[in-house]
Design a protein around this nucleic acid. Structure first.
Length: 771
DNA sequence: TCTAGCTCTGTTTTT
DNA sequence: CAGAGCTAGA
């Protein structure tokens, strides 16, 4: 306890009733939670009786590790710690029968949900432009998070909302969607919450069992909980009222997925006897960073008043940099990164580049490649969303849950075995008409009078037999052996082996990576004393994994690129927040809606407060978006920050941004090696690698950007002869191989050092001659 | 049934 | 620019 300050200490030690810990950014919130758990155990509470809910699986794992080092591993292991979803899924699995589920249920991911909705919209002959899968999925998700079931939806407020936005049929889609999940014996993410709440509401004896078990409940990141989560916690805590929630209303950034900031703002109303603790000392950041962030969040009206302060050094002011384009912004970030590394001698992973939307990562990635800066991109599409991985997983899901129609339709013709769309549609039609699982129809097409020729019927039964065989293997072997068998016998591997295209090679590697993951899972389960790790356990486990949970990249010396949402809870010595432009950050929808605007402001608050000592905010006058150039102006949020904490470096639009001239004293020592300098042609490719996303960068560079860009080349065709060395804005250095055509149709063939041979139309080619 | 190649379109953040 | 959806033709 000696290492805690007074407010932290009292927050840790109070445990007679409900409490709310309002924890400002960088105020040692995780520390308080960890110590509190340890303290409770020291008071004699059994770890088994403590429920601690974190925002990500990774956060749970880290907290367990800390507790393991404070007390012991065995104690840490017995804690019920995890995300809402992972904890509730386990409860649903255990109580499957009471919850009205078959215990072999599988989980549909967000992509599959959308696919199902898309199919439904099509079948109902609704307009797919009005009823966009993503929009409808969002409505259904919102409903579930507000505990509105399909049956209740039609007469709910949400329905009125739909009518107002001219999509009155959402309720029918919701009903059909629910019916399909049920017949597939599947649940989606939101069902984990909705079903748990309903289970507790309808089965008091089950609720009581968990009330007795969870004698103390801790919830982290409470500002980002939704209504369903609030209700479930209330149900669980009803009896003993020993609940401690921790959060910061200023960091509530998940309203789009149903998070309700009112949960934290109203906590003391919901629990009138609650004690409130405020952690206001920031130990993370310099005073300038804290003050800048405070002055920004001050513009929000809707918040709990608190005074976050820092006693660290005053530090550098927060820098604001204006650039003319997204590319220039990216190269500005790169030169500053290099400068920081050279001057302070730290590590690449001291720095992070944060952005509003994932698509912004591309320009940054390209610039990093060019400057030889190692980086990792967090997020984007994760490993488990890749087609080849989803295929294997779908096989595994089908094996444990043969009712799973989503998985069935995914793999029935993968690899191609002559069962096409028409056949599958007939199977589905038959199955739904007779109210039997599709798999049954596939297995005995004749018995169900399926209208197909004998050849097709044979193909169907052969497929069913193969699945039966896999099921038999599963009964005998562990999850890894089963998965291995499936990959080899289903033909997936053979199809990837067919030819050795680079693309297939990497897919194959991914499949092996997946098998590796299964193996690792089985071994870990064994270490924990669970001998027969089953496929079902594995599938449950990966369904809840996210990119943030991926480990192994954490220690690597790389600059981190991620969205601000993904950066929640993290800290970095140096933070670059890019793209502070009206229409991007705040986004266009937020510009007219004050509630959303406040959320975006909180988002920037989160971004700035990730920084420990150095923070740069930047914006670009123009940006490539959807294939064309768009123009932006400076974000209003920059004006929200008190300028006395800012160091504004403006270059003015139109002119090219030259860093060496911009701030000579700052950069002179760290100037980049000139782009004009030629490198030997045998030079290795840039060493930068990205572990989460393969370097799509280089392959994506294959097309010449010509749309909307005025003729750029200032090079006359006369000067271009084979052998001449050139510099291209995007492709780097190269040597001319051939010049053909005349006038505006002149084409130049160039062998680039890194990206190979390209034929460019001279009038658009952004090249300069360098030798 | 399969695939190459074409047109069309475009809020964003994720357990 | 990238992804989805569609069509023609094998």
């Amino acid at each position: 306890m000696e290492s805690l300050n007074e407010s932290q200490k009292s927050a840790v030690m109070y445990n007679e009733g409900p409490s709310l810990v309002v924890a400002g950014a960088g105020s040692g919130k995780t520390r308080v939670l960890t110590y509190k758990v340890a303290y409770l155990i020291s008071l004699g509470l059994k770890p088994y009786n403590i429920l601690a809910i974190t925002f990500t699986n990774k956060a749970a794992r880290e907290m367990k590790e800390r507790i393991a080092s404070m007390i012991d591993e065995d104690t840490a292991r017995r804690l019920s710690m995890g995300t809402f979803h992972s904890i509730f899924m386990r409860i649903l699995r255990t109580e499957a029968e009471a919850a009205g589920l078959n215990k072999d249920f599988t989980i549909v991911d967000a992509d599959d949900s959308k696919k199902i909705i898309k199919d439904i919209v099509k079948e109902m002959k609704l307009d797919d432009k009005t009823y966009k899968a993503a929009t409808v999925a969002g409505r259904i998700s919102k409903a579930k998070n507000a505990l509105v079931t399909a049956a209740e939806y039609a007469s709910s407020k949400m329905r009125n909302n739909d009518v107002a936005s001219r999509m009155p049929e959402v309720y029918r889609i919701y009903e059909e969607y629910t019916r399909r999940l049920k017949s597939s014996n599947s649940i989606d993410f939101d069902d984990m919450l909705l079903n748990t709440q309903r289970l507790f509401a309808s089965h008091p004896e089950v609720l009581e069992k968990y009330q007795n078990r969870f004698q103390f409940i801790l919830v982290d990141e409470y500002q980002d909980t939704n209504f369903a989560q609030y209700v479930i916690i209330k149900q669980l805590a009803e009896k003993h009222h020993r609940v401690c929630v921790v959060g910061d209303d200023a960091q509530s950034i998940y309203a789009f997925r149903g998070a309700n900031i009112e949960n934290i703002l109203q906590f003391t109303r919901n629990y009138p006897e609650a004690k409130v603790f405020k952690l206001e000392q920031n130990y993370r950041s310099t005073q300038n960073i804290v003050s800048a962030a405070n002055s920004l969040i001050d513009k929000n009206l809707h918040q709990i008043k608190k005074t976050v302060f820092s006693e660290n050094e005053v530090g550098e002011k927060v820098e604001v940099v204006e650039t003319s384009s997204d590319r220039e912004e990216a190269s500005m970030v790169c030169s500053k990164l290099k400068m920081l590394k050279n001057r302070i001698g730290g590590d690449w992973n001291d720095s992070a580049v944060l952005y509003r939307v994932n698509s912004q990562s591309r320009v940054i990635e390209e610039a990093m490649l060019k400057s030889n800066i190692p980086y990792v991109i967090y997020g984007g599409h994760s490993f488990y969303q890749r087609a080849e991985i989803k295929d294997v997983v779908a096989y595994l899901k089908l094996i444990v849950n043969e009712a799973d129609e989503i998985s069935l339709t995914r793999v029935i013709n993968k690899p191609a075995r002559g069962i096409g769309g028409t056949t599958v549609a007939r199977v589905a039609e038959r199955a739904h008409a007779l109210d039997v699982p599709m798999f049954s129809v596939v297995e005995s097409p004749l018995q169900y009078n399926l209208d197909v020729n004998s050849g097709t019927a044979k193909k169907l039964t052969a497929f069913a037999q193969m699945i039966r065989e896999f099921q038999a293997v599963r009964r005998e072997k562990d999850a890894y052996e089963t998965a291995d068998y499936v990959v080899k016998q289903s033909g997936i591997l053979a199809a990837l082996d067919a030819d050795s295209k680079e693309e297939l090679e990497s897919k194959k590697e991914n499949v092996f990576e997946l098998l590796n993951g299964v193996k690792q899972f089985v071994e870990e389960e064994r270490e924990e004393g669970r001998e027969n790790a089953d496929l079902l356990d594995y599938l449950n486990n990966i369904a809840l994994l996210t990119d943030a949970d991926a480990d192994g990249t954490d220690d690597a010396s790389r600059v981190r690129l991620m969205t601000i949402h993904a950066a929640k809870g993290l800290e970095f010595k140096n933070v670059f927040v890019v793209g502070l432009e009206e229409g991007l950050f705040p986004g266009s929808a937020a510009m007219t809606d004050n509630t959303e605007l406040e959320e975006e402001r909180r988002l920037l608050y989160v971004a700035i407060t990730r920084a420990m000592r150095y923070c740069v905010l930047s914006y670009a006058g123009s940006r490539f978006h959807n294939g064309k150039m768009e123009y932006f102006s400076k974000s209003r949020f920059i004006n929200d920050i008190d300028h006395k904490y800012l160091n504004i470096k403006s270059s003015g639009f139109g002119r090219s941004f030259d860093f060496s001239k911009q701030d000579e004293s700052f950069f002179s020592r760290f100037r980049q090696p000139s782009q004009q300098q030629s490198r030997p042609f045998s030079a290795p490719r840039p060493a930068a690698t990205s572990t989460s996303t393969p370097l799509s960068g280089l392959t994506r560079l294959t097309h010449i950007v010509a749309s909307n860009t005025p003729p750029q080349s200032n090079v006359s065709s006369g000067a271009l002869r084979p052998g001449v060395k050139i510099q291209h804005e995007k492709f780097g250095t190269g040597r001319v191989a051939e010049v053909s055509g005349t006038g505006t149709d002149t084409r130049v063939t160039i062998d680039f050092e890194y990206v190979g041979r390209k034929v460019l139309l001279l009038k658009y080619a952004k090249i300069t001659i360098i030798g």
